[in-house]
């Protein structure tokens, strides 16, 4: 009997040790079976042992075994709660989904800021009922100059340093050549813009040998200078916002008369005067005017019957103002560190 009692004591110690180590539900269940299993549990084996001991000792021993059983049951019950909780926590952890991990972005790509700006300009004019036309860049001297009232001896040729292909063929110096193509192929009335690449022999921080213009041409009966002003006013307000103001200065272009240089109130300072507008409050933005009768004559229109206006603006100039770019070469370097800022 003493031996059995000692064994119970030993089992108790062993159980306590083992219970401490239990962490998972699975280990817990194994421990329960090990001690309380109906077929081969330790308590069962002790009860089996009881059958072999002296009758006198049976009650006492039975009591001890039962005490041990109750102790095990009680301990397991208490520990079971903790283990279950732990297990639940583990299950929760395993389910965790981190929504803050970085998303999978597609490879970066984007359109060129000059394309974005050109489309912006096109959209505004199309919304005002304009068609879009285009023309050749390798152009005859006649279309680029002569038809626009700029003969070879005209001093205005000095202001447009020209790339020549041959004596009579040039890289167009402006999109105004398309005016001639349009007028030669269409009948008034029409409203057209003509975007495209143009070329001048000039290269520095504000000049590129290749750049982009958008030409505009409206021809019909009774098209007036006030229509030109209103059109440009509408355009500039749509482009730079309702607060943009317009200023026209008389100027000279061989193919328009009257001609105007058009300024917009400085988009940086609103007209107060700053570094961008060199303190004047105004930014030169485009050239415009009423189509010169000589141009109409050159394309076979009767200047007594139709009038019209034309304008030309630089896409780079507008993009530079809109995006705060001060070096025109950035557009043609196509550095991705630059391009990615407009995607």
């Amino acid at each position: 009997m003493k031996q059995v009692l000692e064994k119970i004591e030993e089992y108790k110690k062993q159980f306590e040790e083992e219970l401490k180590k239990v962490e998972s539900l699975k280990a817990f269940e194994e421990l329960r079976v090990k001690y309380l299993g109906r077929k081969a549990g330790i308590v069962k084996s002790l009860l089996d042992l009881l059958r072999t001991v002296d009758r006198d000792f049976k009650p006492k021993l039975g009591q001890e075994i039962n005490k041990f059983k109750v102790f095990v049951e009680q301990s397991l019950k208490e520990a079971g709660e903790t283990v279950k909780k732990k297990q639940q926590e583990l299950e929760e952890k395993k389910k965790f989904f981190d929504i803050t991990l970085p998303g999978f972005k597609s490879l970066e790509g984007g359109r060129h800021p000059l394309t974005i700006t050109r489309q912006l300009i096109e959209e505004i004019f199309v919304s005002m009922g304009y068609d879009i036309a285009s023309g050749p860049e390798v152009e005859s001297d006649w279309y680029n100059f002569e038809a626009l009232g700029i003969p070879k001896t005209h001093p205005a040729r000095d202001t447009q340093d020209t790339f020549y292909i041959s004596e009579d063929v040039v890289l167009r110096t402006h999109t105004s050549n398309v005016q001639i193509h349009v007028m030669k192929t269409r009948k008034p009335p029409f409203k057209v813009i003509m975007p495209g690449r143009v070329y001048r022999k000039d290269a520095d921080i504000t000049h590129s040998p290749m750049f982009h213009q958008v030409e505009g041409l409206v021809v019909g009966e009774n098209i007036t200078f006030q229509d030109l002003k209103g059109t440009l006013d509408t355009f500039l307000k749509k482009l730079f916002g309702e607060n943009a103001r317009l200023r026209l200065r008389p100027s000279f272009f061989p193919f328009t008369e009257p001609s105007a240089e058009v300024d917009v109130s400085c988009i940086m300072c609103g007209g107060e005067g700053c570094r961008v507008c060199k303190g004047s409050g105004w930014l030169e933005i485009l050239g415009a005017g009423m189509v010169d009768p000589v141009v109409f004559e050159n394309v076979g229109y009767d200047p007594e019957k139709v009038t019209g206006f034309a304008f030309g603006l630089g896409v780079e100039r507008i993009a530079m103002l809109k995006y705060g770019i001060s070096d025109i070469r950035l557009f043609f370097d196509n550095d991705i560190r630059f391009l990615k800022q407009f995607r």
């Binding site: 005002m128 029409f190 009966e221 006030q226 008389p250």
Partner: peptide, 17 residues
């Protein structure tokens, strides 16, 4: 004075592109 002229829009109706 160019800036004393009013702003008007052409009175011709053309479909946009």
């Amino acid at each position: 004075g160019y800036n004393r002229f009013d702003s008007t829009l052409p009175l011709i109706v053309t479909p946009g592109k």
